[in-house]
Structure formats: C-alpha cells, structure tokens
C-alpha cells in the first residue's frame, strides 16, 4: 500500500491533488454539462414549462393596476391607403376598459365600454344613445381596424389557452397555443414568440379555423415605463386581405388610480 501511494505521489498533480481526482473531476464536469444541456432542452427558461411561461406573460402584460393612454390608430388598406384615428383608452385591471375616439372630427365621441362577464356598450354621439353590444361579436372587427373585439380584449392567455413548447429562437421562446376545451375563439391556434428577457410577447401568428395562418400581430417598441413593460406599437396584419392596422400608444400613464365611475354608461356618454 505504501509503495503504491508513493508511486502515485511520484507524479504530483497541481494544487496537490492526485491526477485520478482530476480525471474524475473532468469526467464529472462533462457529465454535469451534458445533464445541464439536457435539462435546458427539457425544462426551458430556467426550468419553466410552456404553461408557466404563459402565466409569466400574463403577469407581465397585466401587471399595471390601471392604464391610461392616447392611441393612434393607423389603418393601411391593400392599396397602401392610410387612415389615421385617435382614441383615448382607459383600462382598469384586465376586464374593464373604455375607449373613446377623439379624431377625426366625424368620429369624435364614439365610445366603447367593456365590462366583466363580456358585457359591452357602444355610444354613438349623433344618436346620443348607448346600446349594448351582444357579447358574441368577438370575431367582428373593431371599428374598422384589423383587430377583432377578441384581439382587443385585455388578455389573460393562460386562462384560455394551453401552451406547448416549440423552440427557442433569437432570444425568444416560441410556444404554440391551443384553445382550452371551453374557450370560444375565432382562432384554431396561435404561435407566440415571447421575449426571454422580459416575458413580453414579440409577435403572434394567428391561425383561422381552417388552420391557415391568417393574421400576424407584432408587438414592437417594448419599453419599460415605470416598473411596467409595454409595447408602444402593435401591428395587426391581415394576411388574407393584405391590410394592416398599427396601434401607436402615446402618453401612457400607469397606476393613476382611475375611478370606477369611468367604467359606466354615464361616463361613456360624456
């Protein structure tokens, strides 16, 4: 035994470690590396599942308590003709929202109010009346844009969609979203690119019920305002009709403490 040890000591490794320890260490290191690579494949995003990623998206997107913004709506038709509108948008939580058009003059005062349980009101100033809009108009286009009422909803993806991991691409997680059993939607599936650094969606491919890619939503100019992430430019492209609508968010304010009165029919008529 002594002689054996001595023989080994005859070749001392660095830091006083024996070579066999070093070899073992190297092997273990590579094994761990392999394990880590495998783990990255199986548990992407710091070990998050697709549904967990989707939850994080919801948290990021719906983080503010309320939001007030002036939105510029640019509609570009298939011939490249542009139409610009402006509206004020108030949102509290994820299910209360009021939109009022301010420009052009002929549309000034037209407003939409969305309340929980899919209750929606419309106000037409020329008639001086509000009208309730049936909830199932989801796949109806909102006010001549390429966004449908469903697209305009304050979104909580994880409640209605179940995610499936596809791949990672250019710093984005790519998930495929399919509607959960009860979800009523105009889309058969979505493919969503989610920014790895902040869990804010980058773009969404929307597939119609014939399972064709029909629309493309891009969320650009993602900035951190205060403590919240927000996309200041959202583009919805209708691939079939070759039209697109750009929503540009200006003068965004978060957590301003919007009063509950704002989300009433009476305020809608003001």
């Amino acid at each position: 035994m002594e002689t054996h040890k001595k023989q080994k000591k005859g070749l001392p490794g660095p830091w006083g470690l024996s070579w066999s320890w070093i070899f073992a260490g190297i092997i273990i290191f590579f094994l761990l590396l392999l394990l880590a690579l495998w783990a990255v494949q199986v548990f992407p995003a710091q070990g998050l599942s697709a549904d967990e990623i989707l939850k994080r998206v919801d948290e990021v997107v719906n983080a503010p308590k309320d939001r007030e913004a002036r939105i510029k709506v640019i509609i570009i038709d298939s011939r490249g003709k542009q139409e610009i509108r402006e509206m004020l948008s108030y949102q509290k939580g994820s299910d209360r929202r009021l939109v009022k058009f301010t420009s052009p003059a002929e549309h000034r005062g037209i407003g939409f109010l969305s309340l929980p349980n899919e209750v929606m009101y419309l106000y037409l100033p020329a008639y001086g009346r509000t009208r309730r809009i049936a909830s199932h108009v989801k796949n109806t286009k909102f006010a001549g844009t390429d966004f449908t009422y469903e697209d305009m909803e304050a979104l909580r993806y994880s409640e209605k969609w179940s995610g499936q991991w596809l791949r990672e691409e250019d710093g984005n997680y790519v998930l495929e979203l399919r509607p959960k059993g009860e979800t009523k939607t105009q889309y058969s599936k979505m493919v969503m690119w989610i920014r790895r650094e902040n869990f804010y969606p980058a773009k969404v491919e929307l597939y119609d019920r014939a399972n064709r890619l029909s629309k493309l939503l891009s969320l650009d100019k993602v900035e951190k305002i205060g403590q919240y992430w927000v996309s200041r430019q959202m583009t919805m492209e209708d691939l079939k009709e070759k039209r697109k609508t750009i929503l540009e968010l200006e003068e965004i304010k978060f957590d301003v403490g919007l009063a509950d009165e704002i989300f009433t029919e009476r305020f809608l008529m003001r």
């Binding site: 929606m120 309730r132 809009i133 049936a134 909830s135 108009v137």
Partner: peptide, 15 residues
C-alpha cells in the same frame, strides 16, 4: 337586436 344587445356580424357565427 336581441336581449343581449346590438349584434353586427355574421348571421350564423362560426362559434
């Protein structure tokens, strides 16, 4: 027009 309100859309919706 229904009890639920004004409806503008397809006569029979996909849903």
């Amino acid at each position: 027009k229904s009890e639920e309100g004004l409806e503008i859309g397809k006569l029979i919706r996909d849903e």
